[in-house]
């Protein structure tokens, strides 16, 4: 059985800083997998390596059996990456931006028009899509970017804190969409989040990472039972506090 993501003993150093230190995990196809951990734990670094943006110092990651270093161009066809801090070209309209982004994705995943229509629905931006991105609020920009990551029906969506900066209603909406996409199009999702409610609601499996290593992994329920706590937040505090 092949994995959607297979990370093995990943390490990454920035000068003296060890951002990742022997990170290993596996994600089954169709799974929503959550990475949680304190600030600076290495979540973003792991997601950037999987998205072919930076190179691991050692270890490897395979996305659907393709190595992210040696077969980066194949991997880029399979994934959609939503960076933690991302912007859109501010002099394009939302629609132009979506069109531009859709033009690079595989035709078999739907026509350009279809993708833009899906993105319009996901973002909920309506007529505002015709306005320039520079007139958007922070949350509107985030919705546009989430929509662009999901509209192409990637095999693997890598979402770094997808709902950060979104209001409650739109967070709920985006989570719904993520769930729908996974069901409808067989998308695998890897997200990082600081919102335990979100992780508990979305993820089938969660990895708790600290200092670049996984210190606990399992279903949200398992993590709660193992640590004998009421919710993920407490589990997080307990595990990270111990580590």
């Amino acid at each position: 059985m092949s994995f959607a993501v297979e990370a093995e003993d990943l390490a990454k150093s920035f000068g003296n800083i060890k951002a990742l230190d022997g990170l290993s995990f596996r994600i089954n196809p169709g799974e929503i997998y959550g990475l949680i951990g304190p600030n600076g734990a290495g979540k973003t670094t792991a997601l950037r390596i999987i998205s072919t943006l930076i190179l691991p110092t050692s270890g490897y990651v395979k996305v659907h059996d393709h190595d992210v270093v040696d077969e980066a161009s194949v991997v880029r066809k399979l994934i959609a990456y939503l960076p933690e801090e991302a912007g859109a070209y501010k002099n394009l309209s939302g629609e132009e931006y979506l069109r531009f982004m859709a033009s690079f994705s595989l035709r078999e995943n739907g026509s350009l028009e279809e993708m833009v229509a899906i993105a319009a629905q996901i973002s909920g931006l309506g007529n505002r899509l015709r306005d320039k991105v520079k007139t958007y609020s922070k949350g509107m920009k985030r919705r546009l970017l989430v929509a662009r990551a999901l509209m192409t029906r990637p095999k693997l969506a890598v979402l770094d804190e997808p709902t950060s900066g979104l209001d409650v209603l739109h967070s709920v909406h985006v989570r719904e969409i993520i769930k729908q996409q996974v069901k409808k199009y067989d998308v695998t999702v890897l997200i990082s989040s600081h919102n335990m409610l979100e992780v508990e609601y979305l993820c089938e499996k969660v990895a708790l990472i600290n200092h670049g290593k996984i210190i606990a992994e399992g279903t949200p329920d398992k993590l709660k039972i193992d640590n004998d706590v009421e919710n993920l937040e407490e589990a997080f505090a307990k595990v990270v506090g111990l580590a």
């Binding site: 072919t52 943006l53 990456y81 991302a86 859109a88 501010k90 982004m101």
Partner: peptide, 14 residues
């Protein structure tokens, strides 16, 4: 500055 580079570099274009 506009944080668009990461997204651009993750796209399937050389």
């Amino acid at each position: 500055e506009e944080k668009t580079l990461e997204t651009l570099l993750s796209l399937p274009i050389s």
